[in-house]
């Protein structure tokens, strides 16, 4: 076996405005062998996370009836795998609820089996 068969992946660090261009080298087993380009530890940690298990918090809106606005802003209670983000939004595009709602109310439980709930990010009273 050779350690030479490396594949390099590029990332842009979001840790601070410097925006270091990070490179992650992976060997043929898929293990990280080297991280380059960071200017601090934070960058290294970010590169590792982004390479092995990228996650995102999702914010979007769902339809709401009877409130001041026809849309209610929501977010996932935690970060979900990055490759599930579009699917998550597709689910949420089909959700319609009824006012009133309070900030923190759970709109969808365990979204797509990610373990994250979808919660309202504001109150929306029922308009009379």
């Amino acid at each position: 076996m050779t350690n030479d068969e490396r594949t390099t992946y590029a990332y842009l660090c979001i840790g601070c405005p410097l925006g270091c261009r990070l490179e992650v080298d992976e060997d043929s087993h898929g293990d990280i062998v080297e991280i380059r380009g960071s200017s601090c530890r934070k960058g290294d940690r970010y590169a590792e996370q982004e390479h092995t298990d990228p996650r995102r918090g999702v914010t979007t809106t769902v339809a709401i009836d009877g409130g001041l606005w026809p849309r209610l802003p929501v977010k996932t209670s935690g970060e979900i795998p990055k490759d599930r983000v579009l699917a998550a939004c597709e689910v949420l595009r089909r959700v319609r609820i009824e006012a009133p709602v309070e900030m923190g109310d759970v709109i969808v439980h365990d979204l797509l089996g990610t373990g994250c709930d979808v919660v309202a990010t504001r109150d929306m009273a029922r308009m009379t």
């Binding site: 595009r93 319609r96 609820i97 759970v106």
Partner: peptide, 14 residues
């Protein structure tokens, strides 16, 4: 208009 079909869901308090 938004193109989607929508399903009614009841919100729950946390």
């Amino acid at each position: 208009d938004r193109p989607d079909d929508e399903v009614m869901i009841e919100p729950e308090a946390p």
